[in-house]
Design a protein around this nucleic acid. Structure first.
Length: 376
DNA sequence: AATCCGGGGAC
DNA sequence: GTCCCAGGATT
């Protein structure tokens, strides 16, 4: 159905815009007009809450205030500033795209859909967000929030997980933008979704457009949007080695860097192995498995000593159940400086406690280190 | 169309 | 425990 057939479009847009201007939140990126700053905020906000992003946004722009600064930075430093935010390819893509802007566009963030959509990590949402917020161009910025709001007010019952539904939403959202008000209107839509038309128990009693909300009239605001349920994360059992050095490496812990691609790409971690679900259920068996597999796969000769701690971590699609064992190196003299594993996908290194700030770790390992160093 | 890619907060 | 969030890339 054509967007022009949806009723109360003008009412909806004007009321929402007025609501936004009456009491919009004072967010850090709303204090800047720099398209680069807007861009950074939008990438950080992908799948991430406003409150989570704020401290990262400040730290990131303090260190990389300009496109030139980010373009010139070492990649590890960018990754370290992203530590804990998740979806780390966002950081790599952002830096890659910033370098592209510097080289191809003379350091000016493009202001056309065609150009900006070619940048790495800039999809339909981020493209529309930058064009509308930074340049006030009448492009829709449809995220999960916007789809929820539109699904309710206009009673759209298609599954919002289907790509086709997104197209419908984008057309409708485009048709709603008041002349010359793209930036504020798009932000109004998202702010409204976050504060009033929330996923669960929407605040209909304070809603500025409740009178003409189709879902509200049908009493179905709790049933919309329709969204197919995601598959549960598959369980993975992992055994990790907390290996403390001796001799010249006394007081240090052996860490390794993950491969260039895939899950947690280029992040650092404790050496660990993936075992079958039923395997290593007793500590004795687990320690045998750990020793055997680290030797076989990584040519890393360790002697597991005792269970150290247990850690769980859930990604979108995987659940890690990780048992950590305190280990010693098997080599008698402890001299392993030239004998760290090679010819594996990982890069090994000794790390002193005070060197943690140089390496980016997934949160599950940050938690383990924090607990380990607390014990001394 | 389905899967991969983090982490945390609200309930 | 459950749900979902200011999504994008890859296949």
């Amino acid at each position: 159905m054509p967007s022009s057939d949806y009723p109360h479009r003008e009412y909806f847009a004007e009321r929402l815009l007025a609501w936004y201007r009456r009491g919009k939140r004072d967010l850090p990126w709303r204090r800047s007009r720099d398209p680069y700053h807007i861009w950074v905020s939008e990438v950080m906000l992908q799948q991430t809450r406003v409150e989570t992003v704020i401290p990262y946004y400040h730290r990131f722009l303090e260190r990389f205030p300009t496109i030139d600064a980010l373009a010139a930075a070492p990649e590890e430093e960018v990754l370290k500033l992203w530590e804990g935010l998740g979806y780390y390819s966002r950081a790599r893509n952002l830096q890659s795209a910033v370098r592209e802007v510097k080289e191809r566009y003379g350091g000016v963030v493009p202001d056309t859909k065609e150009d900006i959509a070619t940048l790495k990590g800039v999809g339909p949402y981020t493209s529309g967000a930058i064009l509308s917020i930074a340049y006030n161009k009448p492009e829709p910025a449809v995220d999960g929030n916007v789809m929820r709001v539109l699904a309710r007010f206009f009673l759209i019952e298609e599954d919002i997980m289907k790509p086709g539904t997104r197209t419908v939403m984008e057309k409708l959202a485009r048709s709603l933008i008041p002349d010359g008000e793209a930036g504020d209107f798009n932000q109004a839509l998202m702010e409204f979704g976050a504060l009033v038309c929330s996923p669960r128990s929407p605040q209909c009693l304070t809603c500025p457009v409740m009178e003409r909300c189709a879902a509200r009239h049908e009493g179905r605001e709790d049933d919309l949007p329709v969204k197919k349920k995601a598959k549960p994360p598959r369980p993975e059992r992992r055994l990790a080695a907390f290996i403390e050095g001796s001799g010249e490496h006394a007081g240090k812990v052996l860490i390794r860097q993950r491969p260039q691609e895939g899950l947690l790409a280029r992040m650092w971690e404790l050496p660990h192995i993936l075992v079958e679900q039923g395997a290593g259920t007793t500590d004795d068996e687990a320690m045998r498995l750990l020793q055997g597999r680290l030797l076989q796969d990584e040519t890393l000769d360790v002697l597991p000593q005792e269970p150290f701690m247990h850690a769980e971590h859930t990604f979108s699609h995987i659940h890690w159940d990780m048992q950590v064992y305190r280990c010693r190196l098997a080599s008698a003299d402890g001299k392993t400086g030239g004998a760290l594993p090679e010819l594996t996908p990982f890069h090994y290194r000794w790390m002193g406690h005070e060197e943690m700030e140089q390496y980016a770790f997934p949160n599950v390992f940050v938690r383990i280190f924090r607990e380990a160093f607390k014990q001394g």
